[in-house]
Computed example of a mutant assay.
Amino acid sequence: MPDAFPYQSHWKMEECHSAYWELVPTIDHIIPIAIGGEDNLSNYATTSMFHNSVKSNWTIEQLNWKLYPAGDINEYDGLTDLFVKLTENDLELFDDPYIKRWYKLSVGMK
């Protein structure tokens, strides 16, 4: 449905439907790398593309935002199991670094 929901592979805001920016999850660094944060699991948080873009190299405290604790994956997995199964059934999806990274993190949560 490229007319209804245009998508651009490099997330150009003016070329993507706003739903991608609001609803597609991404990983952000809690403490930005630019100010000394590390690139590891303990410094990752999930957010929307929009919030990731707004946050940029600011800290959560500087923006007066709140970091919510992770939910209990045993109660609700956010469709993680479905994502893992669908990805494993279409190995070409691993060619996309974004999907590959989400897959690794999803499998690591179990």
Rank of each mutant, 00 (worst) to 15 (best):
P2T: 13
P2W: 13
P2M: 15
D3Q: 15
D3T: 15
D3L: 14
F5M: 08
P6Q: 06
P6N: 03
P6V: 04
S9V: 14
W11Q: 05
W11L: 14
M13W: 13
E14N: 12
E15H: 05
C16D: 13
C16H: 02
H17T: 03
H17A: 02
S18P: 14
Y20E: 04
E22F: 13
L23S: 08
V24G: 05
V24H: 00
P25G: 04
P25S: 07
I27S: 00
I27R: 06
D28V: 12
D28T: 08
D28K: 09
H29G: 09
I30E: 02
I31R: 03
A34C: 10
G36M: 04
E38C: 09
E38G: 10
N40W: 11
L41M: 12
A45P: 00
T46E: 01
T47F: 01
M49Q: 12
F50G: 10
H51W: 08
H51Q: 01
N52Q: 07
N52D: 02
N52M: 00
N52W: 06
K55A: 06
K55Y: 03
K55F: 06
S56W: 11
N57F: 04
T59V: 05
E61Q: 07
E61F: 03
Q62S: 11
L63D: 01
N64R: 07
N64L: 03
W65K: 03
K66W: 02
Y68V: 11
Y68W: 08
A70N: 00
A70L: 02
A70M: 01
D72P: 00
I73Q: 05
N74S: 15
E75A: 11
Y76K: 15
D77V: 12
G78L: 04
L79D: 06
T80Y: 11
T80M: 14
V84Y: 06
K85A: 15
K85C: 12
K85E: 15
L86V: 07
L86D: 09
T87F: 00
N89V: 03
D90Y: 11
D90E: 13
L91R: 12
L91Q: 14
E92H: 10
D96N: 14
D96W: 00
D96Y: 01
P97M: 03
P97W: 04
I99G: 02
W102Y: 13
Y103L: 01
K104C: 10
K104Q: 15
K104S: 08
K104T: 03
K104W: 03
L105A: 09
S106M: 07
S106R: 07
V107C: 10
V107N: 07
G108H: 08
M109C: 14
M109T: 10
K110E: 15
K110S: 15
